[in-house]
C-alpha cells in the first residue's frame, strides 16, 4: 500500500497526542501533587495541539476537503467515521478534565474525568487502528495484532512525551521514566511479534482464484490492460524490495524502540533526565514515522494479484 505522508503524520501525531493525554489522565487519577497542576495543564495543551495537527493532516489527503464534515455520519458501520466522532468527543472530555484539574486536582471529579479522558483518547486510537484492521484484502493489517499494536505504540510514544514534561516540571521523574521504558520494551516486543506474524502468513488468494479458476491452477499474466500505471497500481500495488524492508526494520527497531528504551532507562536512573528524555521523544518520533511508513509499504493488497504482483 502506498504510504501517504498525510496518513503517516495523522497516525503518528495522534498516537503521541492521545498517548500523552491517556498518561496525564491516569496520572491525575492516581492522585497527583498539587505542584503538578501546571505540568498537567500544559500537557493537555500539547496533547490537544498535536491531536489537532494530526487530524488536520488527515484531511489533506481528501479529494474534497470542504466535505470532510460528512465523515461523521456513518459511525454505525464505518471505523473511519467512528474515528472522527471519537476524536471530536474527546475534546470536551479532555477540556472538562483540564477544567477540573484547574479547579481542584485532588477532587474526585478530576480523578474521574482523568480516567474518562484516558479512555476517550485510547478509544480514538482504537478506532484509527480498526480502520486498518477491518480491511479484509490486506493481510498485514487485517489481523489480531494491528489494534493492540496501535494502542501500545500510542502509550509508548505518549509516555516519552510525558517523561519529558515531567522532567521539565520537576527535573526528574524516575517512576515515570521507568514506566516509559517498560512501554518501549512492550512496543519493541510487539513489533517483533508483528513482523514474525506477517512473515509467516500465507497469501490470502491466488491469481487463479482471483480470475475464477480452481485455486491451484497455475496462471500468469500475458497482457496487462494498460501499459502505464493506473490508480490501482499506484495505490495498491506499492512494492518495497525485501532488502530495503530489512534495513528499514533494523532502523525502526533501533530508532523507534531501542534508543528511547535506553534513554528512558537513563532517565529512570536520573542521569541527565532532561537531555535523555528530549532525545527519547525525537528518536521515537522519527522512528515511529519510519515504522508507520513500513506498516504501509509492507502491506500488500489482493487486487495487485490481477497485475501479477506477489501479495
Amino acid at each position: 500500500m502506498k504510504p501517504a505522508a498525510s496518513i503517516l503524520l495523522l497516525t503518528t501525531l495522534t498516537g503521541f497526542a492521545y498517548g500523552l493525554l491517556a498518561w496525564l489522565g491516569l496520572y491525575v487519577a492516581t492522585g497527583t501533587p498539587a505542584a503538578a497542576r501546571l505540568m498537567v495543564l500544559s500537557g493537555v495543551g500539547v496533547g490537544l495541539v498535536l491531536a489537532t495537527l494530526g487530524l488536520m493532516a488527515s484531511a489533506l489527503h481528501l479529494g474534497r476537503k470542504e466535505r470532510a464534515w460528512r465523515a461523521f455520519s456513518q459511525w454505525r458501520s464505518s471505523w473511519l467515521s467512528r474515528e472522527g466522532v471519537a476524536a471530536v468527543l474527546t475534546y470536551p472530555i479532555v477540556l472538562g478534565f483540564a477544567w477540573s484539574e484547574l479547579r481542584d486536582p485532588a477532587a474526585g471529579l478530576a480523578r474521574v474525568l482523568g480516567v474518562a479522558a484516558a479512555l476517550a483518547s485510547l478509544g480514538t486510537v482504537y478506532c484509527t487502528s480498526m480502520i486498518y484492521a477491518s480491511l479484509k484484502p490486506i493481510r498485514q493489517w487485517h489481523n489480531p495484532h494491528t489494534a493492540p499494536d496501535y494502542l501500545i505504540y500510542a502509550l509508548f510514544s505518549g509516555g516519552t512525551l510525558f517523561v519529558l514534561l515531567h522532567a521539565l516540571a520537576f527535573g526528574t521523574g524516575a517512576a515515570a521514566a521507568a514506566l516509559s521504558a517498560l512501554a518501549a520494551l512492550c512496543a519493541l516486543i510487539a513489533k517483533r511479534i508483528y513482523w514474525r506474524h506477517i512473515d509467516m502468513q500465507t497469501p490470502l488468494a491466488t491469481l487463479a482464484s482471483a480470475i475464477g479458476l480452481p485455486k491451484d491452477t497455475p496462471a500468469r499474466p500475458l497482457d496487462a490492460p494498460h501499459f502505464t500505471e493506473n490508480f490501482i497500481l499506484r495505490e495498491m500495488g506499492f512494492q518495497i524490495a525485501r532488502r530495503h524492508a530489512a534495513k528499514l526494520r533494523r532502523i525502526t527497531l533501533g530508532l523507534a524502540f531501542a534508543l528511547p528504551l535506553s534513554l528512558s532507562v537513563l532517565a529512570a536512573f536520573e542521569l541527565v533526565p532532561l537531555a535523555s528524555s528530549t532525545l527519547a521523544v525525537l528518536c521515537a518520533a522519527l522512528g515511529l514515522l519510519t515504522e508507520r511508513w513500513l506498516f504501509f509499504a509492507e502491506a500488500t493488497h489482493v487486487s495487485a494479484l490481477y497485475y501479477g504482483r506477489r501479495i
Partner: peptide, 23 residues
C-alpha cells in the same frame, strides 16, 4: 463523496478508481 479512498482499499477486485479531476 469526500475522496478518502478507503472504499478502494476495501475492494479486493480493484474495481474503484479515483477521479483526480473531481476529487
Amino acid at each position: 463523496c469526500i475522496g478518502c479512498k478507503l472504499c478502494s482499499w476495501a475492494c479486493p477486485y480493484g474495481a474503484r478508481e479515483f477521479d483526480e479531476d473531481n476529487g
